Lab assay of single mutants.
Amino acid sequence: MDETGKELVLALYDYQEKSPREVTMKKGDILTLLNSTNKDSWKVEVKITVNGKTYERQGFVPAAYVKKL
């Protein structure tokens, strides 16, 4: 869990989004878990840094590609 009590997951593999509802992640990324009720895909939040500014983006990733921490 992070400092706000949200559950975290670790990306086990790289994943490139295939639709606007998904998010891209790299192996080793730590993501905030938002919903894990679907056995196939979990909703997560990723933090992306562009030019020194951090943005948050929500979307789905394959459940088999992440592990709860």
Rank of each mutant, 00 (worst) to 15 (best):
V44D: 00
T54H: 08
K43D: 02
K67T: 12
R21V: 10
Y65K: 08
G59F: 08
K67R: 12
V9I: 07
E3N: 14
E56G: 11
V61I: 08
N51L: 09
I48Q: 06
S41Q: 14
M25A: 02
G28F: 04
K18Y: 03
A11V: 10
D40I: 11
D14T: 05
S36A: 11
Y15P: 03
D14C: 07
K18M: 10
N51Y: 06
F60D: 03
D40R: 10
E45N: 07
K18Q: 13
T24I: 03
V61C: 04
P20N: 09
Q16F: 14
I48D: 04
T4Y: 13
V66K: 01
N35Y: 05
V23S: 02
R57C: 08
N51G: 11
A64R: 13
S36Q: 09
L34R: 02
E3L: 14
E7W: 12
L12E: 02
T37V: 09
S41L: 15
A64Y: 09
N35T: 05
G52W: 04
K26W: 07
S19F: 07
I30D: 00
I48P: 00
V23R: 01
A64T: 09
V46F: 08
Q16R: 09
V50N: 07
N38V: 05
V44Y: 01
E7Q: 14
V61E: 00
I30C: 08
K26I: 07
Q58P: 02
E22D: 06
A11W: 04
K39Q: 11
L31I: 06
D29C: 07
V61S: 01
Y55L: 11
E22Q: 05
T54C: 12
K39P: 15
L10N: 02
S41I: 14
G52E: 06
Y65R: 05
R21H: 14
I30P: 00
A11N: 02
K68C: 11
E17K: 13
S36R: 06
D14I: 06
N51E: 10
M25P: 01
M25H: 01
P20Q: 09
Q58I: 13
D40T: 11
K26T: 08
T32V: 15
Y65T: 08
T49I: 12
G52A: 03
T54K: 07
M1R: 13
L69N: 02
V44M: 00
Q16G: 06
K27G: 04
L8R: 11
F60T: 04
K53Y: 12
N38W: 05
L34Y: 02
E56F: 15
L12A: 02
E3Y: 13
K68P: 08
I48H: 07
L31K: 01
D40N: 11
T24K: 04
K39S: 11
T24L: 02
D29Q: 12
P20T: 09
G59H: 01
Y55H: 10
T54L: 10
D2A: 13
P62K: 06
A11Q: 01
I48W: 11
T54W: 08
A64K: 14
V50D: 07
E7F: 10
M1D: 13
D14R: 01
V23P: 02
D40L: 11
E7P: 09
E17V: 05
D40E: 11
I30N: 01
D40G: 08
D2I: 14
R21P: 04
N35G: 05
A64F: 09
P62E: 04
S36H: 08
D14S: 07
T32D: 03
R57L: 09
D29E: 09
V50Y: 09
T54V: 14
I48L: 09
K68Y: 08
K39V: 10
D29P: 00
R57H: 06
K67W: 06
V46E: 00
S19L: 07
